[in-house]
Amino acid sequence: MGNMSTSRFSPSELTAILDTFDTLPGVPEVRARTYDLLPPDGLVADVGCGAGRAVVELAARGVRAVGVDLDERMVGLARERFPGGDFRVGDACALPFGDGELRGYRADKVLHDLAEPERALAEARRVLAPGGRAVLTGQDWDVLVIDSDDGELTRRIVRARADLVPSPRAARAFRALLLDAGFGEVAVEVRTVVLAEPGVEAFLARVAEAARAAGAVTDAEAEGWTAEQQERARRGRAFAAIPLFVASATR
């Protein structure tokens, strides 16, 4: 999960969060689409590899993949989970590859966590060979759709959660960022993940808690909003949707 600040979570906690998200309805299909957009030959780097799922799934497709993550703990956990996988510690803005060494570059849920995402894409262009492909995916944190009786409070909660991210609107800027970095053949797709299954209320409770901790809503507001979502879930009426942006481009 990118060069994300993981200090709030232990590796096992973060892995549980990632695994939960990665198995939500629709998410595996988005992940597979990112694989389809990568070249089938040559070395491919999964930047911000987290616990290593994408590296293993790419390898199962016959792709020579290497995972890179800034967090040594996550790299260690990825090596434990997937022995034999190639995982390295590295920064998205200073990758451990030579000029033109890669044929493919993948960054999933990474750019929003960087204060200067343009630096990561300049680095992506450096390490890609001519004709290589870059594939980005992530959510726009300002666009989290949640059904609630209190629209104004929901907007405040979503905005406050977005403000905790260094570059919350990076995903909507994927196209411009890639073009500015010198890439061509830029294309952007949007896939929407719908959360209406049991358990969505736990995700929404974490969103509300983040807004409360940031001081954007009061304890009473957070508790009341969370209680509403729990009641909705009890009645099978909880609903949230997350648009995921997938961008691809050629070096």
Rank of each mutant, 00 (worst) to 15 (best):
L77N: 11
P130C: 12
R251S: 12
P130N: 03
L114A: 02
F174G: 09
L37S: 09
L114E: 03
R237W: 11
A65E: 06
T6Q: 02
V193F: 09
R31D: 07
A124V: 06
T154F: 00
P117F: 12
A187P: 01
A202C: 00
V75W: 01
V66H: 01
G98H: 05
T23S: 15
G48T: 06
E228Q: 14
I157N: 07
V143R: 12
P11N: 12
G42Q: 02
G224S: 13
A60N: 02
H112D: 06
D147H: 10
P39I: 08
K109A: 15
I17Q: 13
W225Q: 01
G90K: 10
V246G: 01
A222C: 10
A134G: 11
E221V: 05
E29W: 01
R251M: 02
D91S: 13
A78S: 14
V217R: 03
A60T: 02
L164Y: 03
D46H: 07
L14Y: 15
T6H: 11
G132W: 01
D22C: 05
E231S: 13
A202E: 15
F174H: 08
V127C: 09
A187T: 13
R64Q: 13
E123P: 07
A51K: 04
L179Q: 09
V217T: 07
R31K: 13
G199R: 11
A220R: 14
A129D: 04
L70S: 13
A208E: 01
V217D: 04
E189Q: 13
E201P: 00
A211S: 08
M4L: 15
L195K: 07
R8K: 11
L43F: 01
Q230I: 05
E197S: 14
A211H: 07
E101M: 10
L121R: 09
A171C: 02
D99H: 13
P96A: 11
S5D: 15
R119L: 15
P130K: 00
A205K: 12
D99V: 14
A162C: 03
R81F: 05
G100E: 12
T154P: 04
A65T: 06
R159T: 14
T250D: 11
L144C: 12
A220T: 11
S10W: 01
Y35E: 11
F203R: 10
G62N: 08
D147P: 00
P39W: 07
K109E: 12
A202R: 14
V27W: 07
A92V: 07
P25N: 08
A160R: 08
T192V: 15
G90P: 04
A92H: 05
P130M: 05
A124R: 11
C93H: 08
V56W: 03
V165R: 06
R119H: 09
A196G: 15
R119T: 09
R251T: 07
L38Y: 04
G224C: 03
E197K: 13
R212K: 11
L102M: 06
R234S: 13
R88L: 14
V207Y: 09
R161Y: 10
V66D: 02
A205Y: 02
